[in-house]
Design a protein around this nucleic acid. Structure first.
Length: 481
RNA sequence: GGCGCAUUCGUCUAGCGGUCCAGGACACCUCCCUCUCAAGGAGGAGAUCACCGGUUCGAAUCCGGUAUGCGCUACCA
């Protein structure tokens, strides 16, 4: 890159940041880090009506959670501030005024009602909707509030080179005179965007594909104002499994939802980057450092990607399995305390959780699932159907006898560890004339309340002698023995 | 309706004129391992590369058209 790379993530605080939105942030961040440039966060709060309280905080939290640190922006400041567009209103007005003075823009006094009628009429006549330029040649009326519209050239064409899409050409005649400054004095996205990207020395604009059609307007604006436009790169969209733009009805799509559902930020980053970017024909698992090293716009695809939850789950499980036990235990702790049933022992012992972690690790795909799978470790009174105890095809009598024998065996055991447990229980199956699977299955249900659980001996060792004996006792009662 | 863009297994993708009767991953199926469930290992099935023409000795790759999809078409971003 000949010029220093300065890219920005410019969210609008109109709600919780969603997957597609954050993927844009991720690509910007990777691009900046790869080129040793600056990653800037700018809040585009120019839509007063749609502004949502707390959205800025959620956006920043999401970035932080994913490890996308910003060099300039809210909370960290920078030389190009302020980083909230609502605090930069004079700058937009100044540019709008200049455009007005130089004949590149004009005041429009059309009422919203008239515009709406006009559009309805155009749609009815199957004409392309767009402002009819009624006010274009009016002389400015003193004292009447209006909006400022851009005087879009009506002939010729506008072309630009997109780093991902290549050459793109638009006929100017298909563009209408869009609004620059609204009647409330706030700029529209188009104005604010080009003013800030210029003032903040943005070198590359990486944004979602939905902006591609707006780019000619921006190019035209840049040239009217006399600013050098940045380079553009439009990123492919992310779709739901019905191929429609990803939204709430596709389930959890806000980044904070993924955090609350127990996904790991490093897994989500890895998964998200693969939606529209690839390294080669086989590598899929990459750390943030590797992503920074390898990221390039040349390998960004042009086709929209469907968000595949199953693959995310798989990848999250993969990252979960690669965690150190103490790390996993630490991350699982908050999920345990909020997800465990109310009857669970609420004071969570760190050492106990640390022992449990390796047993659940390769069975959970999310931290929430971890809490679910580990539930029996924390509940005193297991809840399960007594029929499960006879699931192995055992008769009531046989099962009761086996449980009683196991109880005696456990009582006599010196060391209550996995090896000792196995040393006594395996022979016990033979003594009872049972298949090991039948005995172990029975004990598994008695001790965990489930037919599927981590390996029996290790599980029992972690539970401890007292808990195991108590549960076997309870199972015997359940059998009416 | 207009403009723009895209189109490779169900999904994410590799492929940038011959090495591709198309490779990897998720999901699915089978087997192995095994006290269950997982994890892991080994296999399998799954794509006439949207369709139709053209260029070329040769096309998933280049060109044109068609279809479909998506985006934009707001005093929203």
């Amino acid at each position: 890159m000949s010029e220093p790379v300065r890219v920005r993530y410019a969210p609008s605080p109109t709600g919780l940041p969603h997957v597609g939105n954050i993927r844009t942030a991720l690509f910007n961040w990777l691009f900046a880090r790869h080129h040793g440039g600056r990653f800037i966060v700018r809040i585009e709060d120019t839509d007063v009506a749609r502004k949502v309280e707390g959205a800025v905080g959620a956006i920043l939290d999401s970035l932080r959670w994913l490890g996308l640190d910003w060099d300039e922006g809210p909370e960290v400041g920078g030389d190009y501030g302020p980083y909230f567009q609502s605090q930069r209103l004079e700058r937009y007005r100044a540019v709008a005024q200049r455009l007005l003075d130089e004949g590149h823009a004009y005041l429009c006094y059309c009422s919203p009602e008239r515009l709406e009628e006009m559009r309805a009429e155009q749609v009815r006549r199957k004409e392309p909707p767009g402002y009819d330029r009624r006010c274009r040649d009016l002389s400015p009326a003193e004292g009447i509030a209006g909006v400022v519209r851009f005087k879009t050239p009506q002939t010729g064409h506008t072309e630009f080179h997109d780093l991902i899409w290549g050459e793109v050409v638009f006929e100017n005649s298909t563009l209408d005179d869009f609004v620059l400054l609204k009647s409330d004095g706030y700029p529209t996205y188009h104005l604010a965007n080009i003013v800030d990207d210029h003032l903040m020395d943005i070198s590359h604009v990486l944004r979602a594909e939905e902006w591609l059609s707006s780019t000619p307007r921006h190019i035209l604006l840049y040239s009217a104002v006399g600013f050098e436009p940045p380079q553009f790169a439009h990123l492919p969209m992310i779709l739901g499994d019905d191929r429609a733009k990803l939204s709430k009805r596709h389930g959890a799509t806000a980044i904070t939802d993924f955090r609350d559902d127990g996904y790991l930020p490093e897994a989500l980053v890895n998964f998200l980057v693969l939606l529209g970017w690839s390294l080669d024909d086989k590598t899929e698992v990459l750390s943030s450092q590797e992503l920074v090293r390898h990221f390039s716009l040349e390998r960004v695809s042009k086709t929209a990607a469907v968000f595949n939850r199953q693959k995310l789950d798989w990848m999250n499980g993969l990252y979960l399995r690669n965690l150190q036990s103490h790390d996993l235990a630490g991350r699982a702790m908050p999920f345990l305390s909020s997800l465990l049933p109310p009857e669970a022992e609420r004071s969570l012992d760190g050492d106990y959780v640390l022992q449990i972690a390796p047993l659940i690790q390769e069975r959970a795909r999310t931290l929430a699932e971890f809490a679910e799978l580990a539930g029996f470790f924390f509940i005193d009174e297991l809840v399960y159907d007594a029929g499960l105890l006879l699931g192995g095809g055992l008769s009531r009598e046989t099962a009761a006898a086996a449980l009683a024998a196991a109880r005696e065996g456990l009582h006599a055991l010196k060391a209550f560890d996995a090896a000792s447990l196995e040393a006594v229980l395996r022979p016990l199956a033979a003594e009872l004339g049972l298949k090991t699977g039948a005995l172990f299955g029975l004990l598994r249900v008695a001790v965990t309340g489930r037919t599927a659980a981590p390996p029996l001996f290790q599980t029992m060792a972690v539970l401890g002698r007292d808990r195991c004996l108590g549960r076997i006792e309870a199972a015997l009662e359940r059998l009416g023995a």
